[in-house]
Write a protein that binds this DNA or RNA. Structure first.
Length: 123
RNA sequence: CGAGUCGGUGAGACGGUCGCGGGUCGGCGUUUGCGCCGAUCCGAGGAAAGUCCGGGCUCCACAGGACACGGCGGUGGAUAACGUCCACCAUCCAAGGCGCCGCGUUCUCCUUUCCUUUUACGGGAGAGGAGGGUGGGGGCCAAGGAUAGGGAAAGUGCAACAGAAAGGAUACCGCCCCGUCUUCGGGGUAAGGGUGAAAAGGUGGGGUAAGAGCCCACCAGCAGCCUGGUGACAGGCUGGCUCGGCAAACCCCGCCGGGAGCAAGGCCAAAUAUGGGAGCAGGACCGGUCCGGUCCGCCACGACUCCCGGGUAGGCUGCUGGACCGCACGGGCAACCGCGCGGCUAGAGAAAUGACCGUCGCCGUGCCGCCCGGCACGGGACAGAACCCGGCUUACCAGCCGGCUUGCGGA
RNA sequence: AGGGCCGUGGCGUAACGGCAGCGUAUCCGCCUUUUAAGCGGUAAGGUGGGGGUUCAAGUCCCUCCGGCCCUA
């Protein structure tokens, strides 16, 4: 297999439209730990999409950008280890800044939790 | 070299790997909207922040004037404009410096008087003088700082408490004259006491029964004139002797202001509902087809088909070349202006600048080291473009540079 | 982007520019077997921060900080 694993993050993998966000919130399937709250919803695509929601209470614009960039980097580096075909919305649980490794671990385990939950519900 | 004060600059550097946004070029795919791949170039700030002012731009409204409402307010300039900037004026504050005082306190020295004691030196108390330290008062100079700094003699209003009296006022104690046996009564006065943030000019002299700008000199203030200055204002002369504070209270005067904002505005345009026009008596569904069945419609408020329109979601645009940046020259005290040459320097949209590593540099701590220096660990602020500019305000790590005043030392 | 409102003891809320109150809570005492309720009393201490105007500022003005609401 000539296809090497690429760690890119293109616009098609962003969750952009308000409609998409509303669909994910309406599905009401969430998993969380001390750092992150992950809302998930199947999207019928072969890949995952990522949406970020960081509100004013997590700091000024620089701190919020920092959180978003960390989440994007974590998603980019570990997207091949996530269950496919999900829309994920990430919401921070703590105003403190986590390290990249912590976010990657949290994202992976929470996405798998959410995926199992969705499978149980659809049965 | 030190102290004070004001201002400017600055916002770590280089490289590698993996990624992100945009432009250009090439290739592939494509539903012709775009997507993917590769190369290459570019990719946050001095405050991008707060949104406190001012403009550009866009749309809407609009004969002209006045009123209302809001903002601004020393003078002259700069500017597209400003509540901003520059220069100057006025008032207040002021590090510090230099003189002064029949000043206080303390130390030293000198002269002298008295007491005591001694052989003598000496000890104690007082007076005078000189010098030093320190404190206080007052004067001059002064880097620099602050000022929403027009008008209180257009009018209205406000000033608690205290005080006799708070604005063309008043008379508590007092002072003086007269009456009265005293208590007290009548009158004069505003020097003194007292209250207050503020008491109707201040100091000195004359004058008086006691007093008062009642009279005079100087000072402050006011009015007029002269001189200098574009002007705010400054200086001088003369006059009459005095006419308080607050307008960030109402207000008066002068100047400025049409409203809304890139979610402005323009273009394209699903689904559903709907408006206009044309055609037409059938149309849609079940079913392989006919028959058949169900629903809608049928001389119309018209099913169905076609065309056109407004318009929602959504998309495109506005969207980055500009009162732009750098350098040189000329004008100006300066803010700034003119001219020449060179440069292109973010354009996202659930919102791009990130992650990891290496080398060097900065700061702090610890260790080694006489110093130079070396090693280890840690730190690196405030903060993220959202149509674009000019300001203001606020936040902020280290370093560097300069102006002015002043102290000490040297040439 | 535009506009409005608010900030006062622990809590809720008043105050013409002129001594910062009131209720409740706290504390102490009475009543009660005890608690609650009730009655009486004491004190503490607060105008979000900074600056200005004024003789005097919670109040007027400027500027920051924090919170809430409305419109598109």
């Amino acid at each position: 297999m000539a296809e090497t694993r690429r760690f890119t993050f293109r616009k098609a993998e962003h969750l952009r439209s308000p409609l998409d966000f509303r669909r994910v919130y309406a599905r009401r399937c969430a998993a969380s730990d001390a750092w992150l709250l992950v809302q998930a919803c199947p999207n019928g695509l072969p890949h995952c999409r990522l949406g970020l929601s960081v509100s004013r209470k997590y700091g000024n614009a620089v701190a919020r950008n920092r959180l978003r960039r960390l989440y994007r980097e974590a998603f980019r580096l570990s997207k091949h280890d996530l269950p496919a075909g999900l829309d994920l919305v990430l919401i921070p649980r703590s105003p403190n800044e986590p390290t990249l490794d912590v976010v990657r671990k949290s994202l992976k385990s929470l996405a798998q939790q959410a995926s199992r939950k969705l499978n149980r519900q659809s049965l």
